[in-house]
Amino acid sequence: MPRPRFWGEALRDDESGSAALEFIVGGVVLLVPIVYLIVTLGMIQSHALGVEAASRHVARAVSSAEGAEDADARAAAVLDSIVREYDLDADTLDVDVSCVGDSTACPAAGETLRVTVAASVPLPLVPPVLGLQDATRIGVESSSVQKVSRYWRDG
């Protein structure tokens, strides 16, 4: 004689209709954070490549210049190009040019020049409320070293 089925057993055996809903909910819960992470890492990588290129090219431009005016013009042109190419925020870009040795005149012929470029990356989808857009920035920095040309003219 067959055993009578209870309500709990009938529900446990019924597996129809929930797979699509589970897939949608599970997909959204897993997919949204993964897409946000990929976009964020892409932005950070882009800014990191931008500041690396800026420090390297500014160091080369300044070290191969003939004088201070020429170096300033070259550095400004390189920075403008890098800011446009890598979509960097020019307001958060910080450029520091210094000499490695204990030289009073920097840059000078034969000196070793260090250029450090720093920027901050805004996280995507952070609202400008209560200063969150500034608190959630990630800093990236790069340094490059070049020997100044021996043809550098002071003054």
Rank of each mutant, 00 (worst) to 15 (best):
F6T: 04
W7L: 02
W7Y: 01
G8M: 02
A10V: 12
A10T: 03
A10D: 02
A10C: 01
L11G: 00
R12N: 01
R12Q: 14
D14V: 03
E15Y: 02
E15A: 15
S16K: 09
G17D: 10
L21V: 15
F23Y: 07
I24D: 02
I24C: 11
V25L: 11
G26K: 06
G26R: 12
G27W: 05
V28Y: 10
V28S: 11
V28W: 07
V28A: 11
V29Y: 00
V29K: 01
V29I: 09
L30P: 00
L31H: 05
L31V: 08
V32T: 13
I34E: 02
V35N: 11
Y36C: 08
L37G: 14
I38T: 14
V39E: 11
T40I: 07
T40R: 12
G42Q: 13
G42N: 01
Q45R: 11
H47Q: 05
A48T: 13
G50H: 10
G50I: 09
V51F: 10
E52G: 10
A53E: 15
A54N: 04
A54P: 07
H57W: 12
V58R: 12
V58M: 13
A59C: 15
A61N: 15
A61V: 07
A61P: 14
A61C: 12
S63A: 09
A65E: 05
A65G: 14
E66K: 06
G67I: 13
G67A: 10
E69G: 08
E69Y: 12
E69D: 06
E69C: 01
D70G: 10
D70I: 12
A71M: 03
A71F: 05
A71P: 03
D72F: 08
D72G: 11
A73M: 10
A73D: 04
R74C: 00
R74H: 07
A75N: 00
Y86H: 08
L88P: 05
D89Y: 02
D89W: 05
D89I: 03
A90K: 04
A90G: 02
D91A: 15
D91F: 00
T92F: 06
T92H: 04
D96I: 07
D96E: 03
C99K: 05
C99G: 15
V100C: 03
D102E: 07
D102R: 04
D102H: 02
T104M: 07
C106Y: 02
C106L: 08
A108S: 14
A108R: 15
A109H: 02
G110I: 03
G110V: 02
G110H: 03
E111H: 05
E111S: 07
L113D: 09
L113R: 13
R114S: 08
R114G: 01
V115N: 12
V115I: 04
T116I: 00
V117C: 05
V117P: 05
V117H: 00
A118F: 03
A119S: 13
S120D: 06
S120I: 01
V126I: 15
V126Q: 11
P127K: 09
P127M: 06
P127V: 15
P128M: 00
